[in-house]
Design a protein around this nucleic acid. Structure first.
Length: 257
DNA sequence: GGTCGCCTGGTA
DNA sequence: TACCAGGCGACC
């Protein structure tokens, strides 16, 4: 489940249920995962203890006690499930990590786009991510500097993980709606007060979702995403859907300028 | 910057 | 049957 709050939710699950456990056996069930990690590397996970779990952007960094880092990225449809080894595997199980307590951690991913990568001890992943949305370092000045050299629309720039880490299509749409900024506005054209409003909107949207997932929030709490043709909750104008950079953008042409 | 491909499923 | 999908890296 892709965006930052969902990934944070996943990380908390891991901290609460698998941290401190030792992997007894790892298995990659889907060829697209096997292409990323050799069989020998997968076998080498047996005996590794999970020391800590961190999040950076939408990446999950599972720190092993031997210094290696198992990095997971859910992409579109990935998610974790923890179950007893006796239980039947779910339909879309793509990888399993059997633990030393009789349970196993399962990567469920219907579209099989999620990724798992193992980084050797001493060479942690270089992710190239921008500032975290909740970090104090995200200020209007910082954002303005980032956007100054961008020519594209603000929507596309906010999806760029090198600018701000963790935003995805839904929350970008929601944040722009909240800040009353058109997704088509040129990123470099936004003045400081609008950037301050945008930062506040991003934080509000993420804060509201943190600890849950958008699927659990329910569409009722989304203001623009997937609401094409429905009335804007703020001004009543029908929500419009356009395509930017090959992806759906929902916005209100009435109050997002 | 935009477009395509990765994979597979749900839905109109 | 066709289209759409919460991401992202490779490509022009």
């Amino acid at each position: 489940m892709p965006e930052l709050p969902e990934v944070e939710h996943a990380v908390r699950l891991l901290r609460g249920t698998v941290r401190g456990r030792t992997i007894v056996r790892a298995e990659l069930l889907h060829p697209s995962l096997r292409r990323r990690m050799t069989a020998a590397l997968v076998r080498s996970l047996a005996g590794a203890r999970i020391a800590e779990v961190e999040r950076r952007g939408k990446h999950q960094l599972i720190q092993l006690a031997d210094g290696r880092v198992l990095r997971a990225h859910f992409r579109m449809t990935g998610d974790w499930t923890v179950q007893l080894v006796a239980e039947p595997l779910p339909r879309f199980a793509r990888a399993t990590f059997t633990l030393d307590d009789g349970r196993r951690l399962i990567l469920e991913d219907s579209r099989a786009l999620a990724t798992l990568d193992l980084h050797p001890a001493g060479s942690p992943p270089v992710l190239g991510l921008g500032v975290e949305p909740m970090d104090d370092a995200l200020t209007p000045e910082h954002l303005r500097a980032q956007l100054a050299r961008r020519r594209g629309p603000i929507k596309a720039v906010l999806l760029d993980q090198r600018v701000i880490a963790g935003l995805g299509n839904i929350y970008v749409a929601e944040a722009l709606w909240r800040a009353k900024i058109s997704p088509r506005a040129r990123a470099s054209s936004l003045a400081r007060p609008r950037l301050a409003a945008l930062i506040a909107a991003i934080r509000a949207v993420i804060a509201r979702a943190t600890g849950s997932r958008y699927t659990e929030i329910g569409a009722a709490r989304l203001n623009v995403y997937d609401r094409e043709g429905l009335k804007c909750r703020r001004c009543g104008t029908p929500i419009r859907r356009i395509v930017q950079a090959g992806r759906s953008t929902y916005y209100c042409p009435g109050c997002q300028r």
